[in-house]
Design a protein around this nucleic acid. Structure first.
Lengths: 148, 148
DNA sequence: CTCCATTGGTACGATATCGCACTAAATAGT
DNA sequence: ACTATTTAGTGCGATATCGTACCAATGGAG
């Protein structure tokens, strides 16, 4: 393979990786101690997408192994942010439901993150982000499909 | 803040996070067992950028805490991929040098990853990636600068 | 109905990541 | 020169991540 091509793709995925790392760190700095990006993401997902999802559905939504999701959900249960109930449609499965405490946690997190978004938006305009998302979404879907 | 704005930025960073995760997993599947993306990245960096860097310089290049870099370098030393020598210019510091084994590891890794890049490139053309990199690079630099 | 392959979830162990505290060397201020 | 501060690296403990093995429920084939 052409070396410049390889360098280009490495540079691309490298930038992606560093942005992921920096944004994650920035977000976690706003969360109460002991809570991580996955904790916030799951709660946010339950609000924005659908409450009462199964653990496996959540694991797939975030592209993590199911054991990792089990661990994340245990943390959320310990904090009282979600409740786990049996799945009436499948005895092997469970469902995950937000609690009022979980909603308050999410609202507080949003409130403390908003200023950071504003600051970032002032330096990198919303419209430019809007232009990037479809490309990234397509790339994400391709990588996901290529995964065996 | 406008809710749609917030959703947009969350979507953006979410796509970034998932791409980072999927690409990392895909790369690590090609590496010998026990070796991770950071291991490969450091070796690659020593070849592409500069041999004989200090651990702290490497930590900064990859935006990880220095303790994490210490851990990664220990793994590389155990595999015989790098040698650590004192830094003649600073008694507190060290320098990291590739070994011949390390070069071979890197060459073999590249060879096994190239087909994946080719497959991806067939679905998402190189030129579109080339267009994305400057924006991502700018965003990475902004996030890095905003980090206190 | 019985068997067997598949599926959802967890227990456990290995290891990656990272914050905190510490040491030793370098540097700045006086 | 002397002291205080900063800097490079490590030891250690906490915890996030993930692979393997396992169990229980499901669903399909006969």
């Amino acid at each position: 393979m052409d070396n410049e091509t390889r360098t280009l793709f490495f540079a691309f995925f490298n930038e992606i990786g560093i942005i992921a790392q920096l944004s994650r760190t920035a977000l976690e700095a706003r969360l109460p101690k002991g809570l991580t990006l996955p904790h916030f993401s799951v709660v946010n997902h339950l609000i924005r997408v659908k409450n009462g999802q199964t653990p496996l559905a959540l694991a797939k939504a975030f592209q993590v192994p199911k054991t990792t999701m089990t661990h994340t959900l245990n943390g959320l249960v310990e904090h009282g942010f979600v409740e786990i109930r049996p799945n009436p449609e499948d005895g092997r499965s469970k469902t995950v439901w937000l609690t009022e405490t979980g909603r308050r946690f999410r609202d507080a997190a949003i409130k403390s993150i908003d200023p950071d978004i504003d600051a970032f938006r002032a330096q990198y305009p919303e419209d430019r982000i809007r232009d990037l998302v479809p490309s990234l979404s397509e790339i994400r879907a391709l990588l996901d499909a290529n995964r065996d």
